[in-house]
Structure formats: C-alpha cells, structure tokens
Amino acid sequence: MDAKSSQHLVEQYLKELRAASRGLSRGERRELAAQIEEHIRAALAIMPAPGEAGVREILERLGDPEEIVAEQYGPHGARAGIGAQAVTAIVLLLVGGFLAGIGWIAGVVLLWTSQVWTTREKLIGTLVVPGGLFGAFFVASALLVTSVGSALADRSPAASAARTRRCATWSRIAAAAPRRSSRSSTRSCSRS
C-alpha cells in the first residue's frame, strides 16, 4: 500500500515535470526527465527506510518542477526551443484556413494552449491576419474582384468622356511646357 502510494507520488511528480518542460526541445526534455528519475532512485537507495514520507522529502528537496525548468530556461522554458505543438500551431495558422477554415481555428487553439508564447504574441498571432494565408488570399481576391469591376466600369461612355477631358487638359499643359515626359503622355492620350 505504502510502496504503491510512493510510486504514485513519483509518477505524479514526473508528470508535472513533463508538463513544466513542454517548451524545451525533445532532447532536453528527455534528458531532464531521465536525470530527475535517476536522482530519485539514487536518493531512495541510500535512505535506510524510504517509505512515503521519505519520497515526499526527496521530491520536496528537488523542488517545484516549474521552478526547476524556469531557473535555467525562464518561465515554462519559453525560449528554449519550439516543440511539435508550436510548429503545428504556426503551420495551421498559416495554411489551416484552406481546410474549410477549421484548420485555422485549430491553430488558434494550439496557439493559446501553448506555453511558448506570451499573451501579447498570441494576440498578434490571432489578430494580424485572421484566417492566415487563406484570409490574406480571401482579402486579395476580394480586392482583385473590385478592381476588375471598376476597370470594367471605366469602359463605360461616361468614363471615356471623362478621359477625353483629362487628355485635353494634359495636351494644353504639354503645349505650354513641352518636355519629353509630357510629350509621351500626350502620345498615349492620342492613341486611346
């Protein structure tokens, strides 16, 4: 019974450590877990009668997993490296919008549950281009459609009348001050 609860305490501690070291690289994370496990084993081996109280003491002396990681890597091991979750978040934020928009939402969820970024960075990641590349693509096509629309409208009789008036003004200016650049603009007007 006692051995079982001791085992449980150690497992719980290692689980917390894995959670705290999420921001570290795979290798660093694995190394840290192995080192701590080895430490616990070594400490237990020299204790005359370990028991649950002994295990508690060992873990207490090791310290809070968050603190262990933060001491070396900063809070949550933030800048130590980017894990699989962070990479997935970035990819989904960029191109997830093409997956019926749901991919981008999944990316946002991963972004906010990740411990790699600060709240400010998460806000930027979410709001700068909602929908990621898909959003940008969407906005770009919307702009394209409106500009094509206005170009078509430009061919209407009213628009060509306006262009003729503009050209006439240009020709007068060009005649007053003949320069090479104004000559070329008159030429393009006469051609249209």
């Binding site: 080895e38 310290g63 809070d64 997993p65 262990i68 001491e71 070396q72 890597y73």
Partner: peptide, 29 residues
C-alpha cells in the same frame, strides 16, 4: 560525480542550492 553526489556536495554549502532539481537543467547546458 553522479548527479545525486553533486547535489549532496553542493547542498552542503549553505544557501547555494535551494531546490536540488535546478542543478539538472544546468548540467544539461
């Protein structure tokens, strides 16, 4: 030294090691 030995020796120096676990990420680095 192995990890636990190192910790025990450093821990004997007053105030140097508050939580023993912090030594391990440092050793990794």
């Amino acid at each position: 030294r192995y990890g636990y030995e190192l910790v025990a020796e450093l821990g004997a120096a007053d105030g140097l090691l508050t939580s023993e676990g912090t030594i391990y990420p440092l050793l990794g680095r």
